[in-house]
Design a protein around this nucleic acid. Structure first.
Lengths: 243, 243, 243, 243
DNA sequence: GATGAATGAGGGTTCATTCAT
DNA sequence: AATGAATGAACCCTCATTCAT
């Protein structure tokens, strides 16, 4: 199952490629090769390299040749698993959004208290964003290079991600921990706070570190939402009142 | 009052181009033409078109010829006022960041109460972002295409913008309206909330409108920061407790 | 036996391209294609066409597209074997200088008497110059368009050529056939006489022909150099005293 | 009458521009400006700069703008005195060939003995070539960029130059100083020897200097041509027999 | 007569994509 | 299935030339 790894990769963040079996994706991206297992593993190999190359230089500045070289494969091979460069981007963005989402269900179910669920999701999300900082930015930089249809597909995946956090928020509201806030706006507020760690990392990394960033912003976010009852439940997270 | 201008151009020019006189910019971008007035007006013309074209198609997908056509000049003319395409992007991003910043001082000085200063800045910032939605996104999408030096320059301008809001926050803390929060993190939280209106407009515009977005998020932000004393001062903004 | 080939190409290839294997050249001109045999044959194809096109219109007035057309390949292909237009010129000039030099060793070793060696070299050299008249002029016209490094390389090759004739001259002096003349100046005198057949062909061809040009100028040259002993040895060349 | 000289010229080899009045030239190069005096002085100004710029960078690599800058004049002005860039080259080459020729009549008439006439011409010619080394090479490099008609014109001027030396040679033959050699070939031999000082200066300057070059090559040339009677007459030039 | 801003055709070069092997 | 050489459309940029002032 091991995909032939290239000569000298630094550490190569490993990705989970199970999503490549998703029929929705398979319907949108067609291969010339028959064997589905091969398609899956080759695509995983190509896309992993694509994410790396795109992250470093952006979509347009990256060439198919570079991606092929990074994947230890010939340029021609890529076109047997994908019909053009745009599809490589499409798959790469899918991988990224999928990766960002993947950890959330686990965090959600790990906790029982809705406030803790929310916090665990935010925490988990910030950490994946941190690990895949350049990749996270890629969704902001290059989504516009997709076709309308593919753009819609990626946006849909993003909404699914939001939905997990939204579930925690709704639960917290229902159980009286959170005020009756606008759920979707609050979820975006939350998500964007996590993304900001990547988007403004050039500056934020000068004034804080990940742990502190998570903690401080979690306080900001929770302070906006918590009811007095919620405050009590969140005392472990927030620590003693800072003032 | 419609922001999006139609196909048929020739009216736009909704930007203030005084910053083009800034010697810092003039030092980084050189023209072949001597007359400073002409340089200024031609550059304004070119850059306005560039922002438009870049906003629609991104930097790489836009051609100099398109920008020239949009500006109603010949492609060759552009190269008399700029030495390459990267400089067009550099100037375009400067115009955008400058435009985003421009309204803040006015908002800041209009109000005397620090909480109101903060709110006025946030409100003003959201509104410029709204007017220049595509352009705002451009800074996220294309800053990476700049040379290291120009990237640094743009980031510096961004920090100057933040500093205005930071001043309001510090004043609010000093006078006991805001808790002793981490100023820079809170400012980024604020700024990013405004930017999110552009970055996630595809979705946010489906669930809310600008007025509501500003109000709701202002509440989120202030709830994170206000002391009890601050709450009283902000009662006009927040309205009666939403619960 | 006609040198000038007609409009309809596809036969030319009158050059020896073995020098393309020379590691010195390979170090200075890099290809994207791996297979060394292919690199050699494609370069031979490209350069032969380049020499032809450059000879007709000069370096600047020739376009890569024309060279490609002449070589029956696409413009893009050229850039797989050469990194820019200057390198095409560099290789073209190498081919020319190599071609001019190639016949000399054979002429040198064919004869045993040093005066005859000298004469055979001059004769051979004039004949190659004649066959490649336009190409010979190219070294005068376009060497200056090379980078400093490549210019030096070509000049070095030229000196190697001179050295062969110099060897004959030194031998003739040592054995008392030639007076004790300044070898390098005399060699240049000789070489330039051969080159002049190309450089001033527009006029010389009106007043003489190659055979006569060689014979007459050989007399001029030898008369400058020969000792009385040398005169006797050269009687076959010079014929009965012309007066 | 003084043409406005530019800011910081190093030394600016002065040229004689009287030839610009020549009706043959005036017929081939037309001006938009009426006043013949002005045409003459402006052209002198332009061409002097052109020779300089062309000499340094070659015809194609030089731009009209550069020539204009060098001449302290606007690009537009050039087109009032010349109809295109090719004509600038044409005039520049005329100036060069004219300059090379100019000193010969004086040298010719200074001496009475035909051998001395010949020597004086060769000596004078080598010295002008030395002073205008880059310009001399320009005739070899760029004549081919002229139209057929202009090329013929320049070649005609060259032949006129040769004719002066030919006159000396013929006289020497007639009076028994020179053997009955082929005059035109011998003149080319002579001329090319002088030109070689420019064409091969990169190497010759390493092995000799101008004085020595002239003396050594004069001996080579005269040795080819002199009769015994001529030898006596030339003893001052040749010095005691070098052997 | 002189200026220099403006034009736009044209060239070098890149790179997504194809296809023979 | 995989390779990688070959193609050629398209883009950035230069610069000879024009023309309004």
């Amino acid at each position: 199952m091991a995909v032939r790894t290239a000569r000298n990769k630094k550490k190569t963040q490993e990705y989970d490629s199970t999503w490549l079996e998703d029929p929705k994706t398979l319907g949108l991206v067609t291969a010339q090769v028959e064997d589905p297992e091969l398609v899956k593993s080759r695509r995983a190999q190509i896309i992993t390299s694509a994410v790396k190359v795109f992250s470093e230089k952006g979509y347009y500045a990256s060439t198919i040749k570079e991606i092929a070289r990074e994947a230890d494969v010939s340029p021609g091979l890529i076109y047997q698993y994908v019909s053009d460069k745009e599809q490589v981007l499409f798959l790469a963005l899918q991988l990224i959004v999928f990766t960002l989402k993947k950890g959330l269900p686990e965090a959600f179910h790990r906790e029982s208290n809705p406030v803790m669920k929310y916090y665990a999701c935010f925490d988990a999300y910030c950490r994946v964003v941190d690990v895949h900082r350049d990749a996270s930015m890629l969704t902001y930089r290059e989504t516009h290079s997709l076709t309308r249809e593919h753009k819609g597909f990626i946006k849909g995946m993003e909404l699914e991600t939001n939905e997990i956090i939204a579930a925690a928020v709704r639960e917290a509201i229902r159980e009286g921990y959170f005020k009756n806030i606008n759920v979707e706006l609050f979820v975006y507020h939350t998500i964007m706070t996590a993304h900001s760690w990547a988007l403004k990392h050039w500056r934020l990394s000068q004034v804080t570190n990940l742990e502190d960033y998570i903690k401080t912003n979690a306080r900001f976010l929770l302070a906006s939402a918590l009811t007095p009852k919620g405050m009590e439940a969140a005392v472990d997270i927030l620590g003693p009142e800072t003032e």
